[in-house]
Each structure stands twice: as C-alpha cells, then as structure tokens.
Amino acid sequence: MCVICLDADPVHVVHDHQAGKVRGVPCFGCNAALGQFKDRPDVLRRAAEYLEGIVWKPTLEAPGVYQLPS
C-alpha cells in the first residue's frame, strides 16, 4: 500500500535527495506529485490549504467586516 494515499500499490522506492536516505515506497502518482512540488513541504501545505478552501476564505474581523487573505 502507498505510504501517502494509502490506496494504490507502491512501486517506487523514494529517497531524500540531500541525505540519500530512503523515505518510503509511494505509488507512481504520489511519487510524481512529490516531484512536481520539488519535495517542498511548504508548497505541499499551501496546496492542501488551497484544496480545503482555507486560502481564499475571508476572516470575520467585526460584524459585517471581512478581511480577505493577502
């Protein structure tokens, strides 16, 4: 089972490019996604927030006053 999506069959042994240590065995799709995000956790977090709708939600500052994300 893929260590990321917990669904597909694992097919790739993935390693940390800087440390050279094995991270785990994800499926083809999850391995490709990590590559597209260039192994950057900060970008992956923003992508997850975007998918969850958190990034673009306005914040209620006062009754009837909303702050849009910058």
Rank of each mutant, 00 (worst) to 15 (best):
M1E: 04
C2L: 10
C2G: 04
C2V: 15
V3M: 15
V3N: 13
V3Q: 05
I4G: 00
C5V: 05
L6C: 14
D7M: 01
A8L: 14
D9G: 02
D9Y: 09
P10F: 03
P10K: 00
V11N: 11
H12G: 00
V14M: 12
H15D: 01
H15Y: 07
D16Q: 05
D16I: 07
D16Y: 02
H17S: 14
Q18M: 07
A19D: 08
G20D: 08
K21D: 15
K21L: 11
K21Q: 07
V22S: 09
R23E: 05
R23Y: 09
R23T: 04
G24V: 09
V25L: 10
V25F: 06
C27E: 03
F28A: 12
G29A: 11
G29F: 00
N31T: 05
N31A: 00
N31Q: 13
A32C: 02
A32R: 02
A32Q: 15
A32E: 06
A33V: 14
L34T: 07
L34Y: 02
G35R: 08
G35K: 05
G35V: 10
G35F: 07
Q36S: 02
Q36L: 13
Q36K: 10
Q36R: 07
F37K: 01
F37V: 09
K38R: 08
R40I: 00
R40L: 13
P41R: 06
P41K: 06
P41Q: 03
P41C: 05
D42G: 08
V43Y: 01
R45M: 09
R46W: 01
R46N: 00
R46A: 04
A47F: 11
A48M: 08
A48I: 13
Y50R: 07
Y50T: 14
Y50F: 14
L51C: 12
L51D: 02
L51M: 15
E52N: 14
G53C: 06
G53L: 06
I54S: 04
I54T: 13
V55H: 10
W56R: 05
W56A: 15
K57N: 10
K57R: 14
K57Q: 10
K57G: 05
P58T: 03
P58H: 03
T59Q: 09
L60N: 06
E61K: 14
A62M: 08
A62Y: 06
P63V: 02
G64T: 08
G64R: 05
G64M: 03
V65W: 04
V65C: 01
V65F: 07
V65G: 05
Q67F: 06
Q67N: 10
L68D: 06
L68P: 03
P69K: 08
P69G: 07
S70P: 12
S70H: 10
S70E: 05
S70T: 08
